[in-house]
Lab assay of single mutants.
Amino acid sequence: MTTFKLIINGKTLKGEITIEAVDAAEAEKIFKQYANDNGIDGEWTYDDATKTFTVTE
């Protein structure tokens, strides 16, 4: 398992979430479901060097 981080730069929600996932594809699926569940819709980026996803509304 690898640790992945999501940085949320939303209009109403900001913060960071860290999860353990098998790979970046699994982490992205989990993070996008979390964002969808919380009404966050924005532009996604991923930095493989730091294993960090960012979503900006």
Rank of each mutant, 00 (worst) to 15 (best):
E20C: 02
K5R: 13
Q33A: 09
W44K: 01
Q33F: 08
L6P: 00
T56D: 08
I8G: 06
A35K: 04
E26R: 04
K32M: 11
D23W: 11
T45S: 07
L13I: 08
T18M: 11
E43P: 10
N36R: 07
D41E: 15
T2H: 03
K29Q: 10
T56K: 08
T52G: 10
G42R: 00
D23I: 12
E43R: 03
A27V: 12
A35G: 09
I7N: 12
Q33P: 03
G15W: 09
V22Y: 14
M1W: 14
F4W: 11
A21V: 15
K5E: 10
I30C: 03
W44E: 02
F4Q: 01
E26M: 13
F31A: 12
V22E: 13
A35M: 11
T50V: 10
N9Y: 07
E16N: 04
L6W: 10
E20K: 06
L6M: 04
W44F: 09
G42L: 00
E57C: 01
T52M: 12
W44A: 02
F53G: 01
I7C: 02
K14P: 09
D41F: 15
K51V: 07
E16T: 11
E26C: 02
E57T: 03
Y34R: 03
T12R: 03
A49E: 08
I8W: 07
T3G: 03
E26D: 06
I40L: 12
A25P: 14
F53Q: 05
Y34L: 09
A21L: 15
E43K: 13
L13D: 14
K11H: 10
V22M: 15
I30D: 13
G39Y: 12
M1K: 14
A27P: 01
N38W: 03
A21K: 10
E43N: 13
N36W: 14
Y46K: 04
N36A: 14
T52H: 15
T12H: 13
E28Q: 08
F4P: 00
K51S: 04
I17K: 07
V22H: 05
A49H: 14
W44S: 03
T18I: 10
K29D: 15
K51Q: 07
D37Y: 04
K32Y: 07
K5I: 04
L6K: 00
L13A: 01
K51N: 03
F31Q: 01
N38K: 07
T2E: 12
A49I: 10
I40R: 01
F53Y: 14
Y46F: 09
A49N: 07
T3S: 06
I17M: 07
A49S: 03
K29G: 15
I40F: 09
D48C: 02
W44V: 06
T12W: 12
K5L: 08
T2M: 05
T56M: 06
V55Q: 04
E28F: 12
K11G: 13
A27Q: 00
V55G: 03
I40E: 02
E28P: 00
G42K: 00
E57I: 03
M1A: 12
D47G: 13
F53D: 00
T54L: 07
T50K: 08
E26L: 07
E43S: 02
L13M: 13
F53L: 13
T45R: 07
I17C: 02
G39T: 11
Y34G: 02
E28S: 12
T54S: 06
A24K: 08
T12C: 05
E26T: 06
N38S: 12
N36P: 03
E26K: 08
I17A: 12
I30E: 14
W44I: 04
E43A: 06
G10P: 03
F53M: 11
G39F: 08
G39N: 08
K11A: 13
N36S: 02
L6C: 02
E20T: 15
Q33M: 07
D48V: 05
D37I: 14
M1I: 08
D47M: 11
F4H: 04
T18P: 05
T45V: 13
W44T: 02
T18D: 11
M1Q: 14
I30M: 10
I17R: 07
A35R: 01
V55K: 01
F53E: 00
K11I: 04
T52L: 12
I40K: 01
T45E: 15
A27G: 11
M1N: 04
Y46E: 13
E16K: 01
G15C: 01
A21G: 01
T2A: 15
K32H: 03
D48I: 04
L13P: 00
T18Q: 08
E20D: 15
T3R: 14
I8L: 04
K14N: 15
F31V: 15
N38R: 13
A27L: 00
I40N: 01
D23N: 14
E16A: 05
L13K: 02
E28C: 02
I40Y: 05
T56A: 02
A24P: 14
K11P: 13
V22T: 07
A49C: 02
D47T: 15
Q33L: 10
A25E: 06
M1H: 13
D23A: 08
D23K: 11
F4L: 06
I7H: 06
I8T: 09
K14H: 11
N38I: 03
D47V: 03
K14M: 14
D41P: 13
I30H: 15
T2C: 03
A25S: 12
G42P: 02
G10E: 03
T3M: 13
I40Q: 05
I30A: 06
T2L: 08
Q33Y: 08
G10W: 06
E16D: 12
K51R: 15
M1F: 10
V22G: 08
N9I: 10
E16S: 02
A24Y: 09
T52F: 12
N9K: 06
N36D: 07
I40V: 10
F4N: 00
L13T: 04
T12F: 09
I19A: 05
T18F: 10
E43Q: 05
E16G: 02
K32V: 09
E57Y: 10
A27H: 00
L6N: 06
A21E: 15
E26V: 12
D23G: 02
K14R: 06
T2Q: 10
G39A: 06
D37V: 05
D37W: 06
K32S: 12
G39W: 08
K51F: 10
D37H: 06
I30W: 15
D23T: 03
T56W: 03
L13S: 05
V55N: 03
A27F: 00
A25C: 02
V55E: 01
F31D: 00
I17Y: 14
K29T: 05
Y46N: 10
F4A: 01
D48P: 06
K11M: 03
A21P: 01
F53S: 04
K51P: 09
N9D: 03
D48S: 08
E28V: 09
K29I: 11
A24M: 04
N36G: 10
W44D: 00
L6V: 03
T54R: 10
N36E: 11
E43F: 06
G10Y: 12
L13V: 04
E57M: 02
K32F: 07
F31N: 01
T52C: 01
I30Q: 11
A35W: 01
L13Y: 09
I40W: 15
D47P: 03
E16M: 01
I7L: 05
K11T: 15
E20V: 13
I8R: 00
D48H: 06
K5V: 10
A24G: 08
T45F: 07
D37G: 06
K32E: 12
K51L: 14
F53W: 09
G42D: 06
T2I: 09
Q33C: 02
T18W: 10
A24D: 14
I7A: 04
T52P: 00
G39K: 05
Y34P: 00
M1C: 02
A24L: 06
A21Q: 09
I8D: 08
F53A: 06
L6E: 00
T50C: 04
T45N: 07
L6I: 02
Q33S: 14
V55D: 02
Y34W: 09
T56S: 03
A35Y: 01
K14G: 11
N38M: 08
Y34E: 04
T12P: 15
E28Y: 10
Y34V: 06
D37P: 01
D48L: 02
M1G: 12
T18L: 05
